[in-house]
Write a protein that binds this DNA or RNA. Structure first.
Lengths: 333, 333
DNA sequence: CTGAAAGCGCTTACAG
DNA sequence: CTGAAAGCGCTTACAG
């Protein structure tokens, strides 16, 4: 076989197949352009020599890296998992290499990641978490790269967005709560822009309906179980005990449900709980959890479909795609 | 500013700074090699022109891609999350770009992913899930690339491994169970090589101790909540009801605990439950979950440390690093 | 310390 | 349909 240290190159294949490197390159990228017999000769050579193309060189020459970068706040933050799985699947099918970057919801870190991504000549950048830093947003606008923001619908998308209105989620929850007759809502708001939007949506509708003052507590992101425990303890100390707690994530809701049950409270009679995300655990809990469902898979698919349209030269289209959301009313509220 | 379509190149910087491209390249990769004044001139040019290096070209020329690929079965499979976070963090610090590939525990898919990874000239490949396909293992051995297998300690590592003995986990659980006086264990075994090893470790110790025949049930991977429900229903139908169920994952254990509680069983008196993974939920549950803890962060760090030693030319070292594991005895067993 | 020049392994007009 | 050749944007001995 070929030497182990230096891998076989196009030239090796060409020599073996007795054709030019151009022909081998065409075989690899556009086999239809060759005669059947030439193609067969090249195919045999590729196989015999166990040839693996160098995509670094290919990308440099063609000016198409076939890399798509996706930025996620964290991989444990499983709310984005469906979106990521769907995207990775579809991109791989299209011959792209999905690059996953972890931002830890840190704007500075995000800036560095974006540098690397640009340096790697990524053709598109997909954001799942919110990028708030204005300078980085401006920078991305200047660069020649497709940017898809997902899971939100910013007023001023960097390029295009696929998501839903977080404000509308808050409004919808407020209506749901009012409808069911709850009177003393408690909002647990993760410290992120999107949670803030859901919060204001809720508060606006609630106040407009003449509801009593909303109690709130803000939480650092990412949320974890111990926060849920903390929140529950805080609630017990409140003089006017809430009748429903609206959480920024299913995980927080789960933690509160566990604590409440352990403390002997009945859900939803003594305390109703609403989550966000509709993770698998929401349906599995007892009682089952009322929460907000977002079609993450669809977000992923729409993002890739958008990329495909761009690749096909379809530049002019709407800046944002709203995939909506649903309240999943279960037992906990 | 520079043209938006075609980005600035080294040559542009060199022209502006009135130096050769070689000097700019040195400034970028080894600034110490320049006079302070030259360095300053170059720095200004880089800044003025908003230069972002093309790492495709850089990698091709230097034959160092600075890409490290990590293969994970799925991002929802959160057992590997700590490992991944630790690795991604450390690699990014070292100036590497971590490439995350999702294998879906599918050997065929894994083969294709590895092709892409080799084509991208990755310098190392880190596996979290088990790669069972013998051909692919052989192929990786032939190729000039560092392969680190994590979370397991194969008898015949492709290259090096950082993990622990799954068989030892099974043995330890058997001893734990015997110690606590349980008599009718029920093993829920995910359909994977590693689970199989834990299973045999358990069965060997159990049988050696003269325990009654072990009841078992195998489950497709990845495990999900609905499987837990199914397993619990099966258990109820068994004539000789188990007194302890040993699960292949915390998620399965969690689902069974929820179902058992809902059915009025007391844990651990009526049914003890043991998980695997020690995810955050294990400590948060009520009752808290007894499970196996593995230091995933350490696995990630050791993997990167290994890479660093390799980069420093340290080829000859042991083929495997055992990070061990611990049984976390909580309330559920 | 700095520069001229060759070369990394591909792709792609261009010509035939 | 196929090939010769230029070029993608870097790095790195080599010489000075």
């Amino acid at each position: 076989m070929n030497d182990i240290r230096s891998r076989a190159t196009l030239e090796d294949v060409a020599a073996l197949a007795k054709v030019s490197t151009a022909t081998v390159s065409r075989f690899l990228n556009n086999p239809g352009a060759l005669t059947a017999s030439t193609a067969e000769r090249v195919r045999e050579a590729v196989e015999a020599i166990d040839y693996v193309p160098n995509l670094l060189a290919g990308g440099l020459a063609s000016k198409r890296s076939r890399i798509i970068a996706t930025l996620v706040p964290s991989i444990a933050e499983s709310i984005f998992n469906d979106t990521i799985e769907a995207m990775v699947g579809a991109l791989t099918e299209d011959g792209y290499m999905p690059l996953l970057g972890l931002t830890k919801s840190n704007d500075a870190h995000m800036g560095e990641l974006i540098d690397t991504i640009l340096a790697r000549q990524a053709e598109a950048l997909i954001l799942t978490g919110q990028l708030t830093d204005v300078f980085t947003r401006e920078r991305l606008r200047r660069v020649q790269i497709t940017v898809i923001e997902t899971w939100g619908l910013p007023d001023d998308p960097i390029d295009v967005a696929v998501g839903f209105s977080h404000r509308a989620v808050g409004e919808e929850i407020a209506r749901f709560i009012l409808d069911r007759g709850y009177r003393r809502p408690f909002l647990v708001v993760p410290d992120s822009q999107r949670s803030g939007l859901r919060r204001s949506g809720f508060v606006d509708v609630w106040n407009a309906a003449g509801g009593a003052k909303v109690t709130e507590l803000s939480m650092p992101v990412p949320s974890c179980f111990s926060q849920g425990r903390l929140v529950f303890r805080r609630m017990l100390e409140m003089q006017r005990r809430p009748d429903v707690v609206i959480c920024g994530s299913d995980m927080l809701a789960q933690a509160i449900m566990i604590e409440a049950s352990a403390a002997g409270l009945r859900i939803p009679d003594d305390l109703a709980v609403i989550g966000f995300g509709n993770l698998a655990v929401a349906a599995a809990m007892r009682p089952t959890m009322t929460t907000i469902d977002v079609d993450g898979t669809r977000i992923g698919r729409e993002a890739v479909a958008l990329l495909r349209r761009r690749a096909a030269g379809n530049e002019s289209e709407s800046r944002s795609i709203d995939v909506g959301f649903r309240i999943i009313a279960r037992e906990s509220a």
